[in-house]
Simulated scan of single mutants.
Amino acid sequence: MTVDATRRVEPPPLTFIIVRHPFARLVSAFRDKILRGTSFYRPLAKSMMMRHTELYEQHPADWHDFLKVKSLDMPTFAQFVQYIIDERKHRRPLNEHWVPMNDFCTPCPNRFDIIAKVETLDEDGNYIIYKSGVQDIIRPRVLNKAEGKSSDKLTEYFICQLKEPQLMKLIEVYKYDLEIFDYDVQKYLDCVRAKNSSDSKAATSRKPSRKPR
């Protein structure tokens, strides 16, 4: 039964959707499906590495320590992002774990009563429970706040590895999710621009000076 058909039932049920910042969702998919993925995802990971070998150099210096990975024989986050940008450009379907939510669940035509966010799931989840009148069946709960902070740091860690042109293309891929669900990207733009500026200055300082003749 479709969402619209369900809503025509009397009395109409409460409908809701739980969303997450597209970049946090993207980083989670990269870590779970590509870095720690099963054999199902290994051919795809290899393909990502082969497509844009120039982006392989974007492995951060603290890659091993930060992620506790044993090998660099895996795509960089930049390669993963470029794969998604390329697939979108050529109108090929994206994997369900990183397809934009707007494509996956069509939130606009379905008119959900509540749009809950992972970032505020304590409040939003409890509101859904009470609004549905099932608080005697499903007990309201409090989530571990530390988990959210860790997720935020991980998202920044990966997104800030990108170059600004690539980040702008990534924003374009998820622009409707960002607009519909009111998510901001300014802090990611700021950190990418700051990092790129720092890298540019460092590269300039490493160039040998030319002595006047």
Score class of each variant (00 low, 15 high):
Y176E: 06
S71Y: 07
F77H: 00
K117Q: 01
Q135R: 13
T120H: 04
T76L: 14
F112Y: 14
G133R: 13
D32R: 08
L143E: 05
K131A: 14
C191N: 00
K33P: 00
S197H: 14
S198D: 09
K211F: 06
D122E: 08
L14H: 09
R42M: 05
A78K: 05
C160E: 15
V185D: 02
Q135E: 15
D32W: 00
S197I: 04
Y176W: 02
T6C: 15
A5S: 09
I85E: 08
N144F: 10
I159C: 04
Y176V: 01
C160Y: 02
H90Q: 12
D32G: 02
H64K: 15
L162R: 07
I137H: 02
R20L: 08
P75F: 02
K117R: 15
R8W: 10
C108V: 09
D86Q: 12
P107E: 09
R92P: 08
R210V: 11
R206V: 01
S71C: 05
R20H: 06
I159N: 02
K201N: 10
N196F: 00
R31P: 02
C108I: 09
R8A: 06
Y183S: 00
S198I: 04
K175V: 06
S209Q: 11
I129M: 11
K207D: 00
S132A: 15
F30Q: 03
R92V: 00
E96M: 07
I17M: 12
E87C: 12
V9K: 15
C191R: 13
N95V: 13
E179P: 01
R36V: 00
K131W: 02
L67Q: 05
P11L: 06
L154C: 14
T38S: 10
I18W: 03
D65N: 05
T76A: 11
G37S: 07
H21D: 02
V3G: 08
D190R: 05
A116Q: 07
N95W: 09
E156I: 13
P212V: 00
K70V: 07
D4M: 11
K163G: 01
N144Y: 10
K201F: 11
F158C: 07
D122Q: 11
D65C: 03
